[in-house]
Design a binder for these strands. Structure first.
Lengths: 288, 288
DNA sequence: ATTTATTAATGCATATTTTGCATTAATGGA
DNA sequence: TCCATTAATGCAAAATATGCATTAATAAAT
């Protein structure tokens, strides 16, 4: 059964006149007549009561006119929706990102995405460092923004940003600028640092930093959560080293002292993910 | 867009394998391949991600599979419903009938109809004598069961039953059998009769009856409603003449004395009503 | 009653679409 | 490296849809 036929039928059911209808749907009266006949045949029922003079819907025809109009609209709506899925204008993206950029890079990025693709649904999640690539591979997330380089097969990644690391101290602390730092003064400090994780390039950078000053820090607490670390520093329990993206969080009572060490942000996705939504988002993220 | 194409798509979306699917839907792999391609073309989107080895649904394809399955079921259901309308197995019939047969002929007739056409919806109404044919012509009712012969153009009618008239008296009344009646004894009675209506063949029969006994009855009340008449007779307010169909109503305290006069029941319908439901009902009513 | 205008159906030739057969090209696994 | 599997494609045949011209029926006008 051809949808076109149903459209012919609906047009005729509206006009109840073969010639006028034929013109309206841009075929000849002859073709229309035969289309209606073959539709009736196919359905095994009569749609119109007609003599050589008048055309009138049968009860079944009247019913079908009503119902098919609704169905065809439904089908059209479904088609349009599918088209948006195809163009990557609609769909769902689940993105994992580190807490550090939730007040800087993420809002910028999301603003850009929602403006370009307003129909898109985005889910933001935070995933523990060790789960990131696993979740990506198992379709639990579609994009992972990490501070770690990966060399997994099947995962592609690209650098999107570089942060400076910064020493975070309470406002009343004696460290004011970078020049106040020295091996001796640093040795006396208590540090609050991210969990030291084998293979995490982020924690390797922090290790490199201490190597630069050539001493082992007195770490009194480890946490993977930046907001926890910041709260502890503000209470004077110690000082911390964080990406300076955290400066964008509203954190009164703290001073960020930029350090000459950088940490990179990478965006990771499945190499075989051909979802057009992904392509659109990557294009947005990398353009300009 | 051909529905058949959508069915091919759904089969392939299920199997994800051209050869197997082609066999299942009884066409060649070549034809299937091209049907899918032309469907994709027509929709302007990709349904499957495929290389020479694997077939996989795109997000849009997955969405369409889900939605189209539902729609096609819906369309099939609509088709079946329309077919029942066509066969006259489904639909609505509005039938007007006189009160007199609501405990005899109507229950029998309705039992027969609902057994043969269980999906049918029947509306029973009672319509004043003078409105019957008008309502029929104006599509307010589809069938009118009357005691009157009509000769309206555009209305067809057929006799379905003949009733005897009966004299209705209270149990304690002196009239017991037909032989008790005479012009003299009848003259003394008070009568409750149907509204005397010009052109109503029913009231003409009653007139004929009084002519037979050659006297004018003392009519103290007219009513078109049999149940009203019966209630009044039971209270001893007078005696009445009614079709003996009323014997089937549960009416204790009354005696029906059959009279040698008959009244016919006619069934009337629009000559140009081609509703298959009507044809079915007429067939049921007249068969046997 | 007869004529005329209107209108749906139909015969036939043409154009378009679909199908099947055979073959090709790509790819994963042995 | 070779083989088996599998989706795509060229081509001819079959099926289907379309347009033109004509026919048959009928309601309205005369």
């Amino acid at each position: 059964m051809d949808i076109q036929r149903i459209k012919y039928f609906l047009a005729l059911a509206e006009q109840l006149h073969y010639w006028k209808t034929a013109e309206k749907v841009s075929i000849t009266q002859s073709a229309l007549s035969r289309q209606i006949q073959s539709l009736e045949n196919e359905l095994g029922l009569q749609l119109f009561e007609r003599n050589k003079r008048n055309v009138k819907l049968t009860p079944a025809g009247k019913f079908l006119k009503e119902k098919w109009e609704i169905e065809l609209n439904e089908l059209e709506y479904i088609h349009q929706f599918a088209k948006q899925l195809h163009l990557g204008e609609r769909g769902t993206m689940t993105i994992a990102h580190p807490d550090s950029i939730s007040a800087s890079l993420m809002p910028d990025m999301l603003a850009k995405i929602t403006q370009a693709l307003p129909q898109l649904q985005i889910k933001l999640v935070q995933v523990l460092y060790e789960n990131q690539l696993d979740f990506l591979k198992n379709y639990k997330i579609d994009l992972a923004i990490t501070r770690d380089i990966n060399n997994e097969p099947g995962i592609r990644a690209k650098k999107i940003y570089s942060d400076h690391l910064a020493l975070v101290v309470p406002l009343e602390h004696s460290f004011k600028v970078f020049e106040d730092l020295s091996a001796e003064s640093l040795k006396k400090q208590k540090f609050i640092l991210p969990t030291k994780d084998e293979g995490s390039s982020y924690s390797e950078i922090i290790q490199a930093l201490f190597k630069f000053y050539d001493f082992a820090p007195d770490v009194f607490l480890h946490s993977e959560f930046g907001s926890t670390i910041i709260a502890l520093v503000r209470k004077g329990l110690g000082i911390a080293i964080l990406p300076d993206s955290y400066m964008h969080h509203q954190s009164p009572g703290l001073r960020f002292i930029p350090l000459p060490f950088k940490t990179d942000l990478w965006i990771n996705w499945r190499a075989d993910d051909h979802n057009p939504v992904l392509a659109n988002i990557l294009k947005l993220v990398f353009e300009e």
